[in-house]
Nucleic acid binder design. Sequence first.
DNA 1: TTGGTATATTGTCATATTCGAATATAAATA
DNA 2: TATTTATATTCGAATATGACAATATACCAA
Lengths: 113, 113
Amino acid sequence: MKNHEFYCLHSDLCKTLANPKRQLILDALRNGEVTVGDLVNQTGIPQANVSQHLSILRNKGIVVARRHGSRVNYSITNPKIIKAFDLISEVLNESLAGQSRTVNKAVGKTHLA
Amino acid sequence: MKNHEFYCLHSDLCKTLANPKRQLILDALRNGEVTVGDLVNQTGIPQANVSQHLSILRNKGIVVARRHGSRVNYSITNPKIIKAFDLISEVLNESLAGQSRTVNKAVGKTHLA
DNA sequence: TTGGTATATTGTCATATTCGAATATAAATA
DNA sequence: TATTTATATTCGAATATGACAATATACCAA
């Protein structure tokens, strides 16, 4: 059993990934460096909001910024982030595929939703 | 580029994983079925709170409940959940190891925290 | 049926997250 | 220097989340 602090760090990292807009951004960064402006265009998210999310991702060390003239290029620091992302996609797809079977079936007469 | 709904489902799933207590619980379920009572003992989390978290995990299809007498056994529905969990652990460890180098270095004179 | 043990749900409050609007900063250019 | 373009930060309001206490439900045994 690992310690409490580890779980906090781990879930903190997950929490950072757990936002639809940040996922859009991460997916847009999947193939390499992209500027903020391009992220705005590709995702349709307002500029200020993109910057907010990039700031969050930066602070967690998930992305890194590199200024190039007036533009700032962002990229993902660790490719395993994308691997984890894709694994969770798989879980999601399998879950969606096998839905409505035993998954949420009631147990006994409990209220188990 | 995938659609918005997919990202919402995906981040919803991540969000469910993104909680230290739920991670403790998931790690305790790593090797197979465990009863609620055992989860309470192993994690030190109060019973009501464990049930709350199990309810959340159940509703997302991450764990499944099986009643056996007066006890209820929980297990993880898809082993890939654990794989994803472990991948994120790796990212975390690598991030902790390589900390304080270039990761959060300022870019230009921006306030980039 | 009564009591006891195991598990689940609800209500409430404190805290955290998210977004848009407004504003600030940096670099490029006139 | 003044202006424009690119990006970042701050503030405030709405909403979501998490924890505990209290209570409810299910099953078992006497």
